[in-house]
Amino acid sequence: MSDATQPTQATEIAAAVRQVLGDSLGYLYPAALRVALRTDIAGHLTDGPKTAAQLAELTGVHAPSLHRVLRFLATRGIFREDTDSAFHLTPAAHVLRTDVPYSVRSTALLLTDEMYWKSTGRLEDTVRDGSTAFNDIFGAPLFDYLDQNEESARTFHTGIADLSAIEQGGIAASYDFPATGKIIDVGGGPGGFLRTVLANNPGLHGVLYEQDAVLQQHQLDDEAIAGRWETAEGNFFDVAPTGGDIYVLKRVLHDWSDDDSLRILQAVRKAMSDQARLLVVDAVVPPGNDPHPAKLYDVAMMTIFDGKERTEPEFKELLAAAGLRLVRVIPTPGTVSILEAVTA
């Protein structure tokens, strides 16, 4: 029996070969992107186009090599080279600037950092034994490693916080929060999302539940929400604060395995009243073969954490194991959805 998917025409074979070999060298793109990030090429182009020689003089790098890297990045829509060999900003390059509110520079620096880079290089080991190689490479699980390495911790937390700052407005606007009550953000980082929710809903009171080191960097000192927030220190594997009307787990569960996620959900479930609701904010992996950011992030999660992005049925099963029932999945303008759950 013939295989209808097997390429037979010379053009089909050539296209398939180009795809596979191009994908095999795909790691060169984040490497080149990191060069542009570390030398702040986007920042140097804000006042107009420049040649690689001019940029090299400003950044102290080798001009011919920089030209080759920028020429390559231009094929991906980051920068544009004109007929005079000068490079211009593009929409994608603008988000690498530090002086714009939608900058993802710090997040891109995180995702191209050796913490991700080296672990990704050991993906085969992860697939063979089912656990991240990060612990073996860096000598400890990620969050323990960050506790011991200040620079890496700064890179990680800044990248995550800046990503959250971009997306949290759209997420907060996607859910119809009650007019009054208490919202408890479990593992809410520095509190950017909680601050946004409280600013949009003046009848709500908020609690940021985190570890002490994170709470020391909180972002809740805002006149718009003065007197309507408090912090609580603790470990979300063990317990969560009681008395909440809305509990939030934003980009938390995807960091953890099913077993660890279940522990977190069980702690929250014990704190919830029968009238309380839980909002799990995470990417939801769709069915089918179409590209989707959740499928990309899912592979990234298993290289650095023992975490995962989940499908809706997987979320439903995990919530049920913790005594919770999935009510609905609410899309947001970004890559994450809001999964609303109640006590079962």
Rank of each mutant, 00 (worst) to 15 (best):
R80V: 04
D144A: 12
D23G: 06
A172G: 04
V252L: 00
G334W: 08
Q216I: 04
N235H: 01
L204Q: 08
V127D: 05
R76M: 07
P190C: 05
V127C: 14
L55W: 04
T5Y: 09
Y209G: 13
A10N: 04
H44V: 02
H157V: 06
Q216S: 01
L70V: 08
A56C: 09
Q9Y: 08
I160Y: 00
G187I: 02
A133F: 04
L55M: 07
D212C: 02
A232F: 04
P30G: 07
E210M: 09
D282M: 03
I13F: 00
G121H: 02
L109E: 14
V104N: 00
A4D: 09
D282Q: 05
D136G: 09
S261M: 01
I166P: 00
P190L: 02
H67F: 13
D144M: 00
L279A: 04
A267E: 00
N235S: 13
R310Q: 03
E81A: 14
Y102R: 00
T39W: 03
Y247E: 01
L318S: 04
D259H: 11
R128T: 09
T59M: 03
Y29W: 11
D84S: 15
A165N: 12
T303H: 00
R228N: 14
F79K: 10
S164W: 00
L279I: 06
D40Y: 04
G43C: 11
E312Y: 02
Q19M: 11
I160N: 03
A108V: 01
H94S: 00
V197F: 03
N135D: 13
A133E: 04
M302F: 12
V280H: 06
A271G: 04
A42D: 03
I137H: 11
E317T: 15
M115H: 01
I330W: 08
G188S: 10
A213D: 15
Y209M: 12
G234W: 14
D259A: 15
P202G: 05
G48I: 12
H94G: 00
A240N: 12
F138D: 01
